[in-house]
Simulated scan of single mutants.
Amino acid sequence: MTSVAIDDEPLALELIKNYAGQLPGLELVKIFNDPIAGVHFLKSKPVDLLFIDINMPDISGLDLVRSLKVKPLIIFTTAYKDFAFDGFELEAIDYLLKPFDFDRFSKAVQKAQDFYSFKHGAQTDTEESLFVHSEYKLIKIPISQIEYIESLEDYIRIHLTNAKPVLTLMSLKKVCEKLPHDKFKRIHRGYIIPVSKVKAIANRKVLLTSGKELPISESYLQFIQEWKNS
């Protein structure tokens, strides 16, 4: 992955340069303490990942990211906690609060590398995953761990095996598009289920292997026949 760092603090840039140099698979192409110069570079030479401070003179990191037509993956680096929600809205990979150490930096980069591989169809492991933003960070969810997905108006709740549910701002239709169509089916305007975890169907209700029972709505009754034939 190619990357660029933009920060008005020279010491912060040197730290990122030092940390990036220790990570395989990450090339730090350029560093900028002038955000305007950084914008011009990114518009002419897009990169895969951008490390960027938020509170800078002339233009904030948030506005800089918004100005880019071709957006790289974003890791915000800042001394202020108050901008976490803004970073979430821009779908940042991670949000590093200064001062951060090498371990925290490398974990953020690993998230970016995982998501980059996912987007380009080259996952490093055989486990299929779903990536969602929750609690101001990008979360990788193995699809084998999904018990069912529940709609909560503008949000969805992803119920997991042996882990607490994950809440994310997304529609049920959108998450359905991200999941393997042969492995997940919608059975109701409020629910998506993994076909492999259906134990039984009776009285227009699905019984999952976890013991959870969910309704099948009139619009999705074809699932019953599909399940019988599978």
Rank of each mutant, 00 (worst) to 15 (best):
Y80T: 01
A202E: 15
H188A: 04
Y220S: 03
F100Y: 13
L50N: 05
S171A: 12
V4G: 10
L64N: 03
F131P: 13
L15S: 01
T168P: 06
A122K: 15
A84R: 11
D8I: 06
P24R: 14
P180M: 10
V175S: 04
P72N: 07
P72I: 12
N203F: 02
Y116W: 15
E14R: 14
F88C: 07
E91K: 15
G25T: 10
N18H: 12
N203G: 07
W227Q: 08
I6M: 10
S3I: 00
K137I: 01
P215E: 09
L62S: 07
K71L: 13
Y116M: 09
E91Q: 14
E9T: 09
E218M: 03
S210C: 05
V70K: 10
E127F: 02
D94M: 04
P72Q: 11
A163G: 02
V109S: 11
S67A: 10
F102C: 01
F32Y: 14
I36E: 13
I59F: 05
A112Y: 05
K81D: 15
K69W: 00
P35D: 07
L130F: 01
L62D: 09
V132I: 14
S171W: 04
D114W: 04
Y116V: 01
A202Y: 05
I149G: 03
F85L: 15
A122F: 05
E226S: 11
Y220I: 05
D154C: 02
R189L: 06
G25Y: 08
I146T: 06
Q123T: 07
G21V: 11
S171F: 08
F102E: 10
K30C: 02
I143K: 06
P24D: 15
G121I: 01
K185A: 11
V65S: 05
L64G: 04
I139T: 11
P99M: 07
I6T: 01
G190T: 07
S171T: 15
G38N: 01
V132K: 12
I141K: 06
V65H: 02
L152R: 08
L138H: 00
K98Y: 00
K137W: 00
E153L: 11
S67W: 06
K228E: 14
I141D: 10
I6P: 06
E127R: 15
A200L: 05
F131R: 13
A202S: 13
K185E: 08
A92P: 11
T161N: 14
R157D: 08
M170C: 09
V70G: 04
Q110K: 15
E127I: 13
L64D: 02
L221Y: 02
D53L: 02
V109M: 12
K205Y: 04
F100N: 01
V206R: 01
L68S: 12
K173Q: 13
S60N: 03
N33T: 03
H40Y: 04
K98R: 13
D103H: 12
H120A: 04
T77E: 02
K119W: 00
Y95V: 04
D58I: 12
N33V: 01
K178T: 04
I36G: 07
N18M: 10
Q225T: 12
H181T: 12
H40P: 00
K205Q: 15
I216C: 06
Y220K: 03
E128A: 12
T168L: 06
V195S: 13
S129G: 00
K30F: 01
R104H: 13
K69A: 13
